[in-house]
Design a protein around this nucleic acid. Sequence first.
DNA 1: TTGTATGCGTTATCAC
DNA 2: GTGATAACGCATACAA
Lengths: 342, 342
Amino acid sequence: MAATLRDVAERAQVSVRTVSNVVSGYEHVSERMRQRVNAAIEELDYRPNPVARTLRTGRTGVLALVVPEIDVPYFAELAREIINAAAAVGYRVMIDQTGHDHEREKELLTGADRTMLFDGVLFSPLVTKAELLEMNARTSMPLVLLGEHEFDGRYDHVAIDNVRAARDAVDHLVALGRTRIAAIGAQPLEDYATPQQRTAGYERALEAAGLEVDSRYLHPAAHYRRADGYDAASALLALPERPDAIFCYSDLLAMGAMRAVFDAGLSVPEDVAIIGIDDIEEGRYSRPSLSTVSLDTPFIAHHAVARIAERIADPEAPAIEVVAPHAVVARESTGGGDRALR
Amino acid sequence: MAATLRDVAERAQVSVRTVSNVVSGYEHVSERMRQRVNAAIEELDYRPNPVARTLRTGRTGVLALVVPEIDVPYFAELAREIINAAAAVGYRVMIDQTGHDHEREKELLTGADRTMLFDGVLFSPLVTKAELLEMNARTSMPLVLLGEHEFDGRYDHVAIDNVRAARDAVDHLVALGRTRIAAIGAQPLEDYATPQQRTAGYERALEAAGLEVDSRYLHPAAHYRRADGYDAASALLALPERPDAIFCYSDLLAMGAMRAVFDAGLSVPEDVAIIGIDDIEEGRYSRPSLSTVSLDTPFIAHHAVARIAERIADPEAPAIEVVAPHAVVARESTGGGDRALR
DNA sequence: TTGTATGCGTTATCAC
DNA sequence: GTGATAACGCATACAA
């Protein structure tokens, strides 16, 4: 049986109060007491029970990271960084997958899920704005949004400037001399902020270049996985006027799109230049290597954790928006000189 | 403030005992009581506090999944399936990364980590056998091993037959007529079971084919990431007698190896055939698509969760070994006729 | 500085 | 079948 505070107290001939003080690093403890207590702790191999501590303090030391699917490389890379950043400040991370399920997202946010065993949630949402507002009203769970950027100061969030990132990506294609530039990743529902913003950036770039916005070139994608990119690109290539460049709203879409181009007997970047967003490692080793917009995931993770920690400490503090830097990385898929590993 | 059992009890004019019975689905409760209690629960929007429940019952409903790095695609895909399989039986999953750090692994297993807030751990280890035995002696934490397969009935584990899988992969290369077959992924430390077994399978396949085992063709890899595969393959290609095939101990190594072959001005599979192990989605879309040994990850996840659930229920039950099926999938990287998406 | 006593919200043990 | 109450292990208000 595991030793408790009382066992240690008995063993050290002191009160539980003193043991508790030592364990939690309370300052005003005499050196003799501390020694005696530590000895007893050592002998009994005592470890504080975190559950009891939580029941008492109301804090679990656990954060929830909510993503659609953990095996999407960008989310996996984000999770990696977030777990590390959280560990650095004493938090553990529980990962929840929503699987693109709105109901599941709602459950998680309202606590309808009935297992509120975390102090705060880092949420990479698909959900609509209206729903989110409504949900937050019902619960006081500290919340930081990732990858969304249009909540008018109501929530903490960490994200890149999506409009600008999309615009930069398309500008890059324009600079290559491409004129029939398609996009993959638009979403039908207008409340999805991220795709909306990327579409806006895409359109602005075209307009600035004096290119016409052709709705047939704006192809939706239900999810952002390889298969979606493959199907979308296949459809685009079958158009009477085939595009000579494709901007994909995620690197994973781009990987699928590249494969579709090859399977159509065409080549990248000669026939079709391709650029994505995310800068997942896969794109640095693919053939051709994938041009993309790099996101500085460690920055995002660091600030996400810092935000949630402050939000937990002070629920009333004003919301903060953190804009993460991004940068176009030109690789082979747009004819860039950069080799895979540079 | 959140409502508690007592609040509900007062509201419904019954004892907390009765409310508890209703909440936990106890059978012997009269219909009238149940209705009254449920009404009160509804009105107060009561939700059981999982922390208090845990303190009382000693069960958290949380499993730990310990992997080296969550952004390695195979682990991400495994995590996805395990989270889903665990959710299906009422468990949540906390992910811990060891980052190839032995000390961290030990902490996690001994609970030196001081946060024993899970009921059991699913462990994908790097650690040596001896250490593992020692650690298990100090703690009674239910444990199921993933991907290891040489612990002589002492632990539950779920894994493929590594020797056989490696042998099958190399047999496939042999059947192609390749004679200078290299391998990437051997580990210097002899206690790492998985690489040891894969090397054994590799050597057996060569011997069976009457090919000599050349130690220069057996290339180590510190980790199993793309960069390691890239470096190892580059070294192999610089050999006086360049290999005409490479068996990689993971798909990720293979992705790096393929890129190295291209950067050396050679082609896959014409100059060098390549096969991996894992069957990650990335390999189905790469160019060429990657031949591999497929692992049935959902099977592994399902059985891993089933094992840990039984182990938690009965710590004394005899350990069970589950051997997951595997199958060679021939794709383009070994000249297979299979297209990417088949 | 240290000891004593209470309560966090639940489940389980006893009675009835 | 239901009610009163102790206990899970810890942190802290209050006393000393």
